[in-house]
Design a protein around this nucleic acid. Structure first.
Lengths: 119, 119
DNA sequence: ATGACACTTAAGTAATCACTTCAGTGTTTC
DNA sequence: GAAACACTGAAGTGATTACTTAAGTGTCAT
């Protein structure tokens, strides 16, 4: 019996949820220009350090960021392939959508030929 | 005086928040293969029609989906450029990150030349 | 050792979320 | 005109979120 009490959220849930907060996006933006400590990441924000750490945890759980502690400072950095899942989902939507439009306009062109083309 | 009581969430907030729910992503996936009515969209899900309509509202507010009512049936479809904001944000992160890595490896190559290259 | 530093953890709170049910509203169909 | 259909809107509920404060835990400098 594999019945889970609360189903684990899908990776994409965690990823998009993580990106839905402006502070968390800001931290990711900061980290794309290079690693930073927790307090460096916290500096631009009005919130408490505790709140920043909680955001960081969401980012790590989503696979976007990873970090390691050395002495008393934790250094955070982008997880290299982190965004690729989200990127791929969006790309899949775009291509499916575009293929459909192509088929549709092809169909319309063919139909136009069938009756109204030469008056 | 432009003081807002509750700051309006940024478009990206709404967009990623909308994509963070599996049911909403499922509806977007369904709609990329063509328009659908509300009940058609609701069919695969165990939840009430009301809940589906609420998800749909989130999707419309985020700019991912639009809909129009004809007679008693509301037809939903993908909003063409809808995903592009999210797509662009992700792309921007990727390119910034990659440029940084390039600069870094360039620097490392240059540094290696400076002392240890010819033993 | 003492104190400053960089977090870390726990507990609490107000707001938002993802639903539910129930009671409509307008539209076709018979 | 009555009944079925396709939503629509309001109100309520329990869970999750985004914070807060307060009290730690190791680490490094003096």
């Amino acid at each position: 019996m594999t019945g889970l009490q609360h189903a684990a959220p899908a990776p994409l849930d965690l990823m998009f949820q993580a990106l839905a907060d402006p502070a968390r996006r800001g931290m990711v933006e900061r980290l794309t220009q290079g690693p930073a400590s927790v307090s460096e990441l916290a500096a631009p924000y009005a919130m408490s350090l505790s709140a920043v750490v909680q955001h960081l945890r969401v980012l790590e759980d989503s696979g976007l960021v990873r970090s390691q502690k050395l002495g008393r400072v934790r250094t955070c950095q982008i997880q290299p392939g982190g965004l690729s899942l989200a990127e791929q989902w969006i790309n899949d939507r775009r291509t499916t959508w575009e293929r459909r439009l192509d088929r549709l306009s092809q169909y319309l062109a063919d139909t136009a030929q069938d009756d109204g083309e030469t008056p």
